[in-house]
Nucleic acid binder design. Structure first.
Lengths: 167, 167
DNA sequence: TGGGAAATGATGGGGGTCAATGGGATTTGA
DNA sequence: TCAAATCCCATTGACCCCCATCATTTCCCA
């Protein structure tokens, strides 16, 4: 379950767009055949995730004080503004007009993997941003501290399996 | 069982409103074919939930000191003022006049998912509030500490079902 | 190793189905 | 007996299923 790479697909005149095969494959075992999308907080982009990821968000919100202001805001912003989008027979979703407008998407959509989640962009907007962030990363000499293998969930390590083999 | 998204439906002149298909689907296994609504204690909105969630609230109240003022207040506001609303043949409920008035609902109702629960709003009132939530979330740099997958209820994780045991 | 064939993913579009809505008819209950 | 709730059916428009085509990639074999 990992979203990687950038995939550019066409938005047809019915408002449909194919979800990249790789992304669909990453969602194979989900109980819901489709994806969730919501508006990004900081970017002119859409955040995408799986059903189980959404469950995880809900479960985490549940833990916060049921009456806290922060939980309220997060619920409104994420759960309240998310769209549950099922695939059609060909693995496409219908991109709601509201989201098309928010992300200023025209006739093409870039699916950008971010590991457990992904983003949808207007490719023309994403490209320059991607280059900028690449330059920043290089200049900063950023390093990422990797988690030891042993702490990874089962199924994410070679030689283990979560259910059946996912080779 | 997850309520997500915002769904705006019409309140007809008989005081009926369709419960969104997605919400009804989330309540499929409930013993009661309908929803519960009560007045929110901090917003001009209605809180909605399932029968089993209502049971959960009752159970939580049990744990509070039975004679505490807090328990009294909560019992009055939630259990005492809640309405049990069955669907008609088309999946609609009748919105009681008392609740319409409280939430200042006119001819449209917004069903807003919040995970285990949902809220009903006058869309014109909700919209600006949701914008404000978004802004606060952004400024606060709020991040939600996600619960580890392993602690999620079974059936909420890919590759598990709540039927049999998945080691 | 190159070229052609087959498989697979992406795209376009028609039409049937179902959710949302409106309103009349019948039943229930005060 | 009247009002309100429930049942029932009609309408409509959005969405989903289906199929046809096109573009790639993969595979196979010379």
């Amino acid at each position: 379950m990992l979203f990687t790479g950038t995939h550019i697909h066409k938005l047809d005149r019915k408002g449909r767009v194919s979800v990249p095969k790789r992304f669909r494959a990453a969602l194979d075992n989900e109980e819901f055949a489709g994806i969730y999308l919501y508006q990004s907080h900081k970017e002119s982009a859409l955040e995408g995730c799986s059903h189980s990821h959404m469950e995880r968000i809900a479960a985490s919100l549940d833990e916060l004080d049921m009456f806290s202001d922060e939980a309220d805001d997060l619920a409104d912003t994420i759960l309240g503004s998310s769209h549950m989008l099922p695939y059609d027979g060909e693995g496409r979703i219908i991109l709601p007009a509201e989201l098309i407008e928010f992300a200023r998407i025209e006739d093409q959509v870039a699916f950008v993997g971010r590991g457990r989640t992904f983003r949808l962009w207007n490719p023309d907007i994403f490209k320059p941003l991607q280059e900028a962030s690449r330059t920043r990363t290089l200049n900063r000499g950023a390093t990422l501290k990797l988690k030891p293998m042993a702490e990874l969930p089962k199924g994410a390590r070679p030689g283990t399996s979560d259910e059946e083999d996912a080779s």
